[in-house]
Computed example of a mutant assay.
Amino acid sequence: MSITTQTGAGIVGATGVASGLGGQGAKEVAAIVAVALLVIGGSELLLRLFEVPQFILPTPSAIASVFASAEMPTIAEHYSYTLIELVTGYAIGASIGLVLAAVITQFPFVEKVITPYILLLVTTPMLALVPLLILNFGFGFTPRIIAVGLASGPMVMINAATGFRRVDAMKIALVRSCGASTLQIFSKIRIPMAMPMVIVGLMIGAIFGMITAVGAEMSGGGFGLGSRLTTYSSTLRMPEFFACILILAVTGITIYAFFFWLGKRLAGWES
Rank of each mutant, 00 (worst) to 15 (best):
Gly263Ile: 09
Val156Pro: 05
Ile134Lys: 03
Val175Ser: 07
Val156Leu: 02
Ser43Cys: 06
Met170Asn: 15
Ser69Tyr: 00
Leu37Gly: 15
Gln106Asp: 12
Phe50Trp: 08
Ala64Ile: 10
Val66Gln: 09
Ala30Ile: 09
Tyr81Val: 13
Ile114Val: 14
Ala213Ile: 08
Met203Lys: 12
Glu44Ser: 08
Val17Ile: 14
Ile185Pro: 00
Ile134Ser: 07
Ala257Asp: 00
Ala160Tyr: 06
Tyr117Val: 12
Gly221Tyr: 12
Met210Ile: 14
Gln54Arg: 13
Met238Thr: 13
Ala213Glu: 14
Gly25Pro: 07
Phe242Met: 09
Val33Asp: 01
Val29Gln: 10
Thr142Lys: 01
Ile245Phe: 08
Val39Cys: 02
Pro196Asp: 14
Gly224Phe: 05
Phe107Tyr: 15
Phe50Val: 01
Leu132Ala: 15
Ile40Gln: 03
Leu46Val: 15
Ile199Trp: 01
Gly224Asn: 07
Pro192Thr: 03
Ser152Tyr: 05
Thr254Leu: 12
Leu150Phe: 15
Leu21Ile: 08
Ile211Gln: 02
Glu51Pro: 02
Ile247His: 06
Ile172Glu: 12
Cys178Asp: 07
Leu229Val: 10
Ala169Trp: 10
Leu121Met: 13
Thr162Glu: 04
Tyr232Gln: 06
Lys27Asn: 00
Ala102Gly: 11
Thr74Tyr: 09
Arg190Met: 13
Ala76Asp: 01
Pro58Ala: 05
Ile189His: 02
Gly222Cys: 01
Gly163Ala: 02
Lys112Ser: 07
Ile172Ser: 03
Gly153Gln: 09
Ala160Asn: 03
Leu183Pro: 05
Ile75Thr: 05
Thr4Glu: 14
Glu270Gln: 09
Gly41His: 00
Ala213Gln: 13
Pro116Met: 12
Glu51Gly: 01
Leu266Gly: 05
Val99Arg: 06
Arg166Thr: 09
Ile96Ser: 01
Asp168Glu: 14
Ile145His: 07
Tyr117Arg: 11
Ser69Lys: 04
Arg144Glu: 15
Asn159Arg: 05
Met218Cys: 01
Ala180Glu: 07
Lys188Phe: 10
Leu133Asn: 03
Leu150Ile: 04
Arg48Gln: 12
Ala161Phe: 10
Leu150Met: 12
Ile145Cys: 06
Ala180Thr: 10
Pro239Asp: 06
Cys244Gln: 06
Phe107Thr: 02
Ile134Arg: 04
Thr15Asn: 06
Met218Thr: 03
Ile189Met: 11
